[in-house]
């Protein structure tokens, strides 16, 4: 299973610290959500990716209120700016839940590297308005293309969240999610200071279906007690 660190509360305004801690702890990604100080997660993602190597940078993006074409362009540009390390996690914008499915479909259609037209209930692309007399295109092509083969565009359910408190409880929640729902990824909502513990104590325990009892005991008696004494 792959794990992303999601900073919470005031730590959402320090995304670089969260990303560095996640990378140093061997986690797979960081999940960025909007906060008052940083209300545009795709801009934050582009900035953060430049401060850490390798890490996947997931950005939670609200859909349904503004034009999905604008969102698709921002996502593709941020994907290029991150060197293809962006994961867009879509969720319905407050008050725009009815338009969410159509918005997601439009972003998904627009993010593919070929000309397209889209005729939905809410949005039509191109609109073919009679007043735009010099617009003749029946199909439009969104640019830039994804940095890699495809843009990673996920629904919120593709990145289930687990609020981290105690490592044993987090391990149990992740194992249950994998067994019951086939989780491949999870975002751990945790203090940045807990990143090391997630990397050392949670991550190793959720990769295989089961570990020999002897190995867990070995970790407990050596590494875990060592970590505890370091605190």
């Amino acid at each position: 299973m792959r794990l992303a660190l999601e900073p919470a509360g005031a730590e959402r305004a320090q995304p670089v610290a969260a990303a560095r801690a996640a990378w140093a702890a061997g986690l797979d990604g960081v999940l960025l959500t909007a906060c008052d100080a940083l209300p545009a997660p795709l801009v934050t993602a582009a900035y953060v990716a430049a401060t850490v190597p390798d890490l996947l940078v997931a950005a939670e993006v609200e859909l349904g209120d503004r034009h999905p074409l604008e969102v698709a362009e921002e996502a593709l540009t941020a994907d290029q700016a991150t060197g293809g390390r962006l994961v867009v996690v879509a969720r319905p914008a407050a008050g725009a839940e009815d338009a969410y499915d159509e918005a997601l479909e439009l972003v998904r259609t627009a993010a593919v590297a070929r000309p397209f037209a889209f005729a939905g209930e809410r949005w039509r692309v191109p609109a073919r308005l009679a007043e735009n007399t010099d617009a003749h295109d029946e199909l439009v092509r969104v640019m830039p293309p994804p940095a890699r083969a495809r843009l990673e565009l996920w629904r919120a359910g593709d990145l289930p969240r687990v609020r981290h408190g105690d490592p044993a409880a987090t391990v149990a929640a992740l194992r249950a999610g994998r067994a019951e729902h086939g989780w491949e990824w999870a975002a751990l909502t945790a203090p940045v200071a807990a990143a090391a513990e997630l990397g050392a104590r949670v991550r190793p325990r959720v990769q295989l279906d089961r570990l020999p009892d002897g190995l867990e005991r070995h970790w407990e008696q050596t590494l875990d007690s060592e970590q505890r004494s370091e605190r």
């Binding site: 795709l42 801009v43 582009a46 362009e73 290029q80 700016a81 991150t82 969104v142 640019m143």
Partner: peptide, 19 residues
Amino acid sequence: LWYDGWCPAPLHAAAAAAA
């Protein structure tokens, strides 16, 4: 929407350079 990839979201591109 142009063939050459002209950037449609300059703030998102600039953010990486600002970092």
